[in-house]
Design a protein around this nucleic acid. Structure first.
Length: 721
DNA sequence: AGAGCTCGCGCC
DNA sequence: AAAGGGCGCGAGCTCT
């Protein structure tokens, strides 16, 4: 409990106490704050708020208190007191750009929901983003984890106390659902005070690193500049056509039902024994269970092995049982494997890591091609899975979780190692692109339209820049096709052209060859092995080895880039993108420090066999982890650069919208795509600004390959691409 | 029941 | 012997 010494925490009970502290808090160069809320949702309010002046001194203002008798939240204040407190909080949170917060978007949202002002522009530093940027890009970035790691081994204790209190008050405390606000206000307040103290503590540890590591530009101009964008994405939400989705739900359920009927009619006669066994697994055969009672009435003596004689009785019971449902579960890979390999007698080519018989779309596809007599059922199995996944991931949650016809996906700025956003609840970044049914139901508000633009070939263009290969950059100055050009350059083939307009264009002359090139044009740059390549191209390993050699001979600067990445993780322990973002490696630098060569398999094996890395169960796992780090280092400079391009575009477009006083907000980001919603009459202007921001910004200025984006205007997301 | 895992698959 | 990268999520499954 060392860290806890000399900490001053105070639960405010009178406005006089606040009055006394006002000047002191206003005078502070930085203050940390944290809210305790009724939940994690878009419209949840805070029940209390904590402030810290330093990592030693904090206060908590209980704003509302959970009353056990009435099971509701109540103000412990007079109306005058509430006015005073509201004003006090607003003064502190909008005084200067000096606020420190852990996951600021969340707390600013709670403040806005409760007090109708949003302090996001006053955030000086977000300690979660600080950790992600200057300490370690790998999660967890949560306050509790970081506090334990960097400040106080007992940082989990205040939460343990709170947990007890919440339970005593009859509140829920589960992994994904914790009713913090039901805890006694003194305990909740103490917990909150510790959180703000920890936040300040992390700030004190992390902030100096920005300068020490010379990451000011990335920190100020990308990470913190992006925070208001993140917040706007999280606050705005997006309208959905609920009636459309209700109809789609009916349609999909009917589709699924029909597909299942066909599948079961094909296999019905073969699954009886399987289902009997499943019934026995699922329902107990005891003298008191209904299955047991039935079987005993049919003469069963209670000896397990003789159950086999009661096969028909079990079927009979099951057919008349109230619980009757299909035991064969088409969502289960185990059951799917049973259908494919036991009933249909198809060959099993591959196993899962845990020894199960692997069933994937690719395997189904291969079997479909090779076994015509089973092709119908295989196709239906695939289609059913897709339909079910879409139904349960989007359609049902859209219907059940929309708030007044809107969804509020959450965007996480520290969700990836590369600086991309991640999205969840639900994930708006993996809505099907080809099957347009989901996007069709995502609509703009009345009088507003979507303005949507994605980059043309963002990642290949980033790759072209990072590779320093003139032949690849040429693709984007001469309007060539990327894959055709890579193929022809690697093969040294000058008889064909990469120009889509030319009569001897590769994509025209040999479409398949161009298609195959997609498998390796970027893959090899990201460290793909000959082995994997042989597998995807269905070629022998010698042939793919030759291809790989040719590839790096044709692109010597790319090879140099790989060598630079390797040297960087070996000696510095990280790679850096053009935008200044870092990805740290752990194993490679450690091997190097201990005198092993991380790029020599034998040397890594020696390290393993000497017991230096016995936290890895096998040498294979160690090798795989080292290989992963190396490949990550190749990929990072490209993917992360692309991420920074989009981040810079989002920052710039938000500024342009403000400067031009448009009624327009950012609603979605999907890695190479930005979506605005704007007043219909201003859509042309917004398009112009979006294009400008995407094509010319802080990061594109640093790249010698032109970036292209073409905005589209539409009322439904499906029409905006 | 709940937590945490694997698997498979959607997007970039 | 065998490693392209970055995600989130639903469902099954296993352990508790």
């Amino acid at each position: 409990m060392l860290w806890n010494k000399n900490k001053s925490i105070k639960i405010i009970t009178t406005t006089e106490e606040l009055k006394e502290l006002e000047a002191k808090y206003l005078a502070a160069e930085y203050i940390a704050f944290d809210t305790e809320t009724t939940g994690l949702g878009r419209f949840d309010e805070f029940v209390g708020i904590g402030f810290a002046l330093s990592e030693d001194e904090a206060i908590y203002i209980p704003y509302k208190i959970y009353d056990l008798a009435s099971k509701s939240l109540k103000y412990p204040w007079t109306l005058e007191a509430i006015d005073y407190i509201d004003a006090w909080i607003e003064k502190q949170l909008t005084h200067k750009k000096r606020l420190i917060c852990h996951n600021a978007s969340f707390d600013c949202k709670a403040v806005d929901n409760t007090l109708c002002f949003d302090p996001i522009d006053y955030i000086y530093a977000d300690t979660g983003l600080l950790h992600h940027t200057v300490i370690d890009e790998e999660p967890p970035h949560g306050l509790k984890n970081l506090s334990i790691k960097f400040l106080d081994e007992s940082a989990a204790n205040p939460q343990e106390d709170l947990k007890e209190s919440v339970k005593v008050m009859g509140g829920i405390w589960k992994a994904a659902d914790k009713e913090f606000y039901k805890g006694a206000y003194t305990i909740l307040g103490r917990y909150c005070c510790y959180d703000v103290l920890y936040t300040f503590g992390l700030f004190n540890r992390f902030m100096p690193r920005v300068e020490e590591e010379q990451m000011q530009d990335l920190w100020e101009n990308e990470v913190m500049a992006l925070l208001p964008v993140t917040h706007e994405l999280n606050m705005t939400g997006i309208r959905i056509d609920v009636e459309y989705f209700k109809q789609l739900k009916e349609e999909m359920e009917s589709n699924i039902k029909n597909m299942e009927a066909i599948i079961f009619s094909e296999i019905e006669e073969h699954i009886v024994d399987y289902e009997v066994q499943a019934v026995l697994d699922k329902y107990k055969v005891s003298s008191r269970s209904s299955l047991g009672k039935y079987l005993f009435s049919r003469g069963y003596k209670g000896n397990e092995p003789e159950l086999v004689n009661f096969r028909d009785d079990i079927i009979q019971w099951y057919k008349t049982s109230k619980n009757q449902e299909r035991v064969m579960n088409l969502d289960s890979n185990k059951d799917k494997a049973f259908i494919l390999f036991d009933i249909l007698q198809l060959p099993c080519y591959e196993n899962t890591a845990t020894g199960g018989r692997k069933v994937t779309a690719a395997i189904l596809k291969r079997l479909e091609e090779e076994y015509a007599e089973s092709s119908e059922i295989l196709k239906i199995l695939m289609d059913r899975s897709k339909e079910k996944k879409l139904l349960t991931t989007y359609v049902v949650p859209f219907i059940e979780k929309n708030i007044d016809g809107r969804m509020y996906p959450s965007f996480n700025q520290s969700g990836t190692t590369s600086g991309r956003y991640s999205s969840n609840s639900p994930n708006f970044q993996n809505i099907p692109a080809r099957d347009n049914r989901i996007k069709k139901g995502i609509v703009s508000d009345d009088g507003y339209v979507f303005v949507n633009a994605d980059y043309s070939s963002l990642e290949p263009r980033s790759f072209a820049s990072v590779s320093s290969e003139t032949s690849i950059k040429k693709v984007y100055t001469d309007g060539l096709d990327f894959y055709s050009s890579v193929y022809l350059t690697v093969m040294g083939d000058s008889s064909l052209s990469a120009d889509p307009e030319a009569p001897n264009y590769l994509g025209l002359v040999d479409k398949q060859l161009r298609q195959d090139t997609k498998a390796w044009a970027l893959g090899l740059a990201y460290g793909m092995s000959e082995f994997k390549l042989a597998k995807v191209l269905n070629k022998d390993i010698e042939e793919t080895k030759e291809l790989k050699d040719k590839y790096f001979k044709a692109f010597p600067n790319l090879l140099k880039y790989h060598k630079t990445c390797e040297a960087s993780i070996r000696t510095k322990g990280y790679v850096t993108s053009i935008a200044g973002r870092r990805r740290r490696a752990k194993l490679v630098p450690e091997l190097h420090r201990r005198g092993y060569d991380p790029f020599d398999r034998k040397s890594v094996y020696r390290a393993y066999s000497k017991g230096a890395f016995n936290n890895y169960e096998t040498n294979k796992k160690l090798m795989s982890a080292v290989g992963n780090e190396i490949n990550n280092s190749y990929n990072f400079g490209i993917q992360s650069l692309a991420a920074s391009v989009v981040n810079a575009a989002a920052i710039k477009v938000k500024k342009l919208i403000k400067d031009n006083d448009l009624d327009c907000r950012l609603v979605l980001q999907v890695h190479d795509e930005l979506t605005l919603i704007c007043k219909e009459s201003e859509a042309d202007k917004a398009s112009e600004l979006l294009r400008e921001a995407m094509e010319n910004n802080r990061i594109t200025d640093k790249i010698d390959v032109k970036m292209i984006a073409q905005p589209l205007i539409a009322k439904r997301l499906s029409e905006a691409k």
